[in-house]
């Protein structure tokens, strides 16, 4: 059964340059590391098209994009343009929700110079740290990601040596070594929150993927590049106490006309439903995301 060609190929394997691109003849020899290399090459190619976080663009870019698209979408974009002036796109690499949240949140704190919010957030981050510790995560596996997020949080408040401007915030969110670490911080926080309240999240997770809470966190929350769903958004919003509004730009419509649906993710909403609902009216989301099936971008109100 030993095929002579195969033998030659094996002998070559040791000396072969691992960077060489596979040709069709090589399919039999293709290894996982080749596949991963190819994947990162595709990602690098995509990176040229759009940075992790794009520039602020007028909402009219959406009109142009859907010029020859569905009339329902065109109508919805018109409705959106009544309330929103700008959109900021993010790269569609599976991390777009977290990337949107990172930029939108830090930009908000930077604009308002909200020191109270920074202190409140720091408290939440410490709670998240304890959550992970209680769940048995080893400190050194997540502490670098926590530290880097706290650095960013500090840096948006002016008056220290580390302070950054809005332009620098854009640059940082485009820098892989910072951006990916912050995304990973959010993934740890989201995973911890879901596991901590697993009895609450279990039915939603079963509806999404038919697997256990632990499996879901392992395969769909913690790995980079795994897309976010309403479970992720609810958990992150809850864990950090930040309300998020999502505007849905899809082709759904109803008899009464074409409106743009939105959903507000309000921290603690699930608890409030069970108990008294006093105080739930106080929070208004300052982060607004535009959802198109499979992707999130950032929206700016007029």
């Amino acid at each position: 059964m030993q095929n002579p060609e195969q033998q030659v190929a094996e002998d070559e394997q040791d000396t072969a340059d691992s960077n060489r691109l596979p040709t069709i003849d090589d399919w039999a020899n293709i290894k996982d590391c080749d596949i991963m290399q190819q994947q990162s090459a595709i990602q690098a190619e995509e990176a040229h098209k759009l940075p992790y976080v794009g520039d602020k663009e007028p909402l009219s870019v959406l009109e142009v994009e859907y010029q020859s698209g569905s009339p329902i979408l065109q109508k919805k974009i018109k409705t959106l343009s009544e309330g929103f002036a700008f959109v900021r796109r993010t790269r569609g690499d599976g991390n777009c929700f977290f990337r949107c949240f990172m930029f939108s949140y830090l930009e908000h704190v930077l604009e308002l110079q909200d020191k109270t919010e920074v202190e409140r957030m720091k408290g939440k981050v410490e709670e998240c740290r304890k959550t992970l510790q209680n769940l048995g995560y080893v400190d050194f596996t997540f502490e670098d990601f926590f530290a880097l997020y706290l650095d960013q949080l500090e840096s948006v408040i002016q008056g220290t040596e580390a302070s950054i401007s809005q332009d620098e915030l854009v640059t940082k969110c485009r820098d892989q070594s910072i951006s990916d670490y912050v995304v990973m911080f959010f993934r740890f926080v989201t995973s911890g929150e879901i596991k901590k309240r697993s009895e609450f999240y279990e039915p939603f997770i079963l509806g999404l993927s038919n697997c256990t809470v632990d499996q879901f966190c392992k395969t769909s929350v913690e790995p980079m590049g795994e897309e976010s769903d309403h479970v992720h958004i609810t958990a992150l919003s809850d864990a950090l106490g930040v309300p998020i509004r999502v505007m849905y730009l899809d082709r759904s419509s109803c008899d009464s006309g074409v409106g743009v649906n939105h959903h507000d993710f309000l921290p603690g909403a699930a608890d409030l439903q069970q108990g008294s609902d006093s105080g739930s009216s106080a929070v208004k989301p300052y982060i607004t995301l535009l959802y198109r099936p499979g992707h999130y971008d950032i929206l700016y109100s007029k």
Binding site: E10, Q13, K31, D32, M36, Y137, V138, F140, T141, F142, F145, M184, R187, F188, S191, K218, T219, E222, P223, M224
Partner: peptide, 20 residues
């Protein structure tokens, strides 16, 4: 059998920094 390569999700798509 020949290369010793391992098929395990955490070494590929399900990897996360939570692993050591």
């Amino acid at each position: 059998f020949k290369s010793g390569e391992i098929c395990l999700d955490i070494l590929k798509t399900a990897w996360s920094p939570a692993w050591t």
